[in-house]
Write a protein that binds this DNA or RNA. Sequence first.
DNA 1: GTGTTATATTTAGCTTGCTAAATATATGTC
DNA 2: GACATATATTTAGCAAGCTAAATATAACAC
Lengths: 141, 141
Amino acid sequence: MNDNVDCDIRQSLDKVSSQMRRDYSESLRELKLYVGQDNLLARLWQGDGITQMQLCEHLKCEPPTVTNMVKSLEQNGFIYRKRDEKDARVMRIYLTDEGKKLEDPVDFKWKQQQEKLLHSISPEERLILRDLMKRMEKNLS
Amino acid sequence: MNDNVDCDIRQSLDKVSSQMRRDYSESLRELKLYVGQDNLLARLWQGDGITQMQLCEHLKCEPPTVTNMVKSLEQNGFIYRKRDEKDARVMRIYLTDEGKKLEDPVDFKWKQQQEKLLHSISPEERLILRDLMKRMEKNLS
DNA sequence: GTGTTATATTTAGCTTGCTAAATATATGTC
DNA sequence: GACATATATTTAGCAAGCTAAATATAACAC
């Protein structure tokens, strides 16, 4: 499109993010998870029995996306759904034993990925980078 | 997962990138394009009549993805396909007049998005950011 | 209680990605 | 020329995203 610094940044961001995703996706497949499902599970590891709307909020995605992810995770035996007793509209999501067991291995993969991404970047630079990222986040919201 | 700086960066990267994508996607819908299709067209604006394999290379994605994107763009009248005369295996992709007309508006949207992402970040900081992004790119490859 | 409005989830249908397998055509070898 | 191998593309099937529309239940108003 054009070749100034700004453009490089936007493109780089895209490239890094999609490469990171591809990489991590491959890594997660060893645990029979798809990329993004780890985020959903991470929320449940903090405390399960939450509703799909709460998952939407946490994952910053739309209800149909959660429906599909939950369906897939349920079919693979990592979670199960139970209708709320007080309010029949809401589904509450719980971890199975299989789902609970994934916490440590996922944490390991996550750290591995992080290390790969940042290994040549010093602690001081990481702070600067974090600051810049946060500012970009704010710019977009 | 955990709450140190490194983790923030990886998560921030994901957040910024997906927010940027969502934003840009919405913006492109006004031109009847889906996000990612602008990249494919951008390659054609540099010169069309290239093969799907060349598009794969440029977009860094797999052949079936290009097949689908090309199909969608063709149905919407932005490109057309012609079988190569010398080698009947390859399809060559050309811009229609409609497709050519999109170059300027897409460029405008792209710059708008860039400005939004970076507006609070100084030129010096942009250079630092670019350097860090490039290093992360290298770490992943 | 009936009717309206709000909320939670699902369904249908689309695009971007992927992988694995199928198809078609070229090319190189004997 | 026949056969094996390589290359370009497509098909099928899956997941993450989305939007728009459907469904089910709750809650509120009268």
